[in-house]
């Protein structure tokens, strides 16, 4: 490898200097805007500080103890996990289905792709307001469709039993296209001659093709899509903030929303920092799990 041995060749020192000069602006900003604040959030979560306080008092695990005793936090965490648990399988499953179908048809491919991807590129906040109308108890599309099918209807966003589900539906609608596009990329990476080899080996049924080639070859893409969808789902905020504000009856209270309420609305800054740390830990756990699974596959699979 070309390891760094500054000064050992003509211009070696100049090259090292140039490298630092080129990297420095981004490096400084990165530390100032991302890495420094992460450390700060961690430290802040061990204090009792609120915005405007003159003194910063170290209270150790005080905030975390308070969190553990806070029913709103537990509701919020539970809701977030339910949201992720519902929307990730739905997004990944539907995304995979859409990818397989889109790749299997000859015509109108680009139309379908554009249609499924459009929500990813649109302004979620504006579309959330449209969804509010879609969920309207009397004239909304959702209830009209259910009524036509003879199914029971409800006031989706104001019924504590289903409000979170309604929010999850919007999430799935928005992220499905992303999952699809990533799966399509994965599918296009499957060498065609594997299918040909399989056909020569006598297995040319569609199910066999899927089970023996597509699915195993799609493994890494699947892990990746699940991780990304999970991370994005953990970040659910916009829809809750504009449609339900955590209600009704805290049934859509999610982590980031609680964090914003505590940290910015109620100015319990350090407490908000502690919630942020919990949020960060969950996100990192997903990434670690993804890395471990992919590593295993790479080594043993």
């Amino acid at each position: 490898m070309a390891e760094a041995r500054a000064g050992k060749w003509p211009g070696g020192r100049a090259e090292a200097l140039a490298a630092w000069a080129l990297a420095l602006p981004a490096l400084i900003l990165m530390i100032l805007m991302l890495l420094g604040p992460v450390v700060a959030v961690l430290l802040l979560s061990f204090t009792g500080w609120s915005l405007g306080d003159a003194e910063m008092e170290w209270i150790g695990l005080g905030n975390y103890e308070q969190l553990a005793a806070d029913p709103v936090f537990w509701t919020s965490l539970r809701n977030t996990l339910i949201y992720v648990g519902v929307s990730v399988p739905a997004t990944v499953g539907l995304g995979l289905g859409a990818a397989l179908l889109v790749e299997s048809v000859g015509r109108f491919r680009s139309f379908y792709r554009a249609a499924y991807f459009l929500p990813v590129a649109s302004t979620l906040l504006a579309m959330a307001l449209v969804w509010e109308f879609m969920f309207h108890p009397t004239v909304g599309f959702v209830n009209q469709a259910l009524r036509t099918l003879g199914l029971p209807v409800t006031d989706w966003l104001n019924n504590p039993d289903v409000a979170l589900l309604a929010i999850a539906v919007i999430g799935v609608w928005q992220n499905l296209g992303l999952a699809m596009v990533l799966f399509v990329a994965g599918l296009q990476g499957v060498p065609k001659d594997l299918y040909e080899a399989l056909a020569l080996d006598g297995a040319d049924g569609a199910w066999e093709r899927f089970r023996r080639v597509t699915w195993p070859m799609l493994g890494p893409a699947l892990v990746f899509v699940v991780a990304i969808t999970a991370i994005r789902s953990f970040q659910v905020f916009d829809t809750v903030a504009v449609l339900t504000e955590g209600g009704p009856n805290k049934s859509t209270e999610v982590l980031l929303y609680t964090m914003v309420q505590e940290g910015f609305r109620f100015l319990r800054t350090a407490y908000g920092a502690a919630i942020t740390v919990v949020f960060l830990v969950f996100t990192l756990a997903i990434t670690v799990a993804q890395t471990v699974i992919l590593d295993r596959r790479a080594h043993y699979g």
Binding site: L35, V41, I231, Q235, L280
Partner: peptide
């Protein structure tokens, strides 16, 4: 390595310190 580390941080995490700053 720092870049890879920063890549793991969701954009909402630095919000509170940035706000204070």
């Amino acid at each position: 390595g720092l870049v890879l580390l920063a890549l793991l941080v969701p954009p909402q995490v630095p919000a509170i310190p940035l706000y204070i700053g």
